[in-house]
Amino acid sequence: MIFDFVPLWTLILGLAVFFYVLLDGFDLGVGILYNFAPNTPARNLLMNSIAPIWDGNETWLVLGGIGLLAAFPLAFAIILPAIYFPILVMLLALVFRGVAFEFRFRDAEHRTFWDHAFGYGSALATFAQGVVLGAFIQGFEVEGRHFTGGSFDCITPFSLFVGVALLFGYSLLGAGWLILKTEGNLQTQARNQARICFLGTLAAVGIVSIWTPLVDGGIAQRWFSWPNIAFLSPVPVLTALFGILEWRAIADRKSELGPFIYAVLLFCLSYLGIAISLFPMIVPHHYDLWQAASSPDTQIFLGVGTLFLLPVILVYTGWSYWVFRGKVRADTGYH
């Protein structure tokens, strides 16, 4: 082999999944907070703040899933059967949530039903994604090239807890987005929600950070052995720093962008933390990135196009965000 494409693909897939978590994270978060909106005009605004962009955000879920199939097919073939039911719940919840954008406006008689489809659907999809993450960190029963456990094995106290943690996390992103996109009472409410979600996220991240090394000796070894502890110490230190900045930005009524940005940075660090814990394994305890990789021909053929297309996609995605910039108001009336 002339050139090793695995690190490049690890980076691309890592970025795609992270984009998904951030982008659909904040619009799923808005969906969770939708359950707590005081009245119909407020719900209209919340929904309109994400209506033009949610579809693009969800595209990254497909790109992430297909990206895993393309770059690390063995991992795809082992992991997806292992998380059969969380995936099912996520997909069905996303169906309800996705059609609610259109149906809610067209079907005023059943608006309450579609309101619930949107709010509960967003919460359920988020919870299921958290369970997937928890199950992934714990690892799966594998023999040869197959998952050999049962379809309910992924439901454990740990994975359920990560599910709850992600509810707080996405809600924090969502509240940050709403602080940016709304004003007046709604913005004040978003700040209050952001405060609660921040404390919830902080507690959850703290508990997961202690729980993970306790479940998995390898992860404890990675973080707490010398000299790793010195190299990796910036991760917790920066997390604490951004935590303080996030708290202050939420309280500072002049800061409209801050709560969202610091929440993104906190997600970035949590993501990095998980990556550090698991690297280089893509099927924890069984296969590393190189063992699970697709053929070099496949990685080259797709890599060339991806390197060309990704920047183009980012540019026009950015443009569509730019078109819908600014505060969302009742009279904007996308619908």
Binding site: L63, I66, D297
Partner: peptide, 12 residues
């Protein structure tokens, strides 16, 4: 996957 995944990925 080596064959069909790039097709699906290019679709995306």
């Amino acid at each position: 996957a080596n064959i069909i995944s790039p097709m699906l990925a290019y679709e995306g």
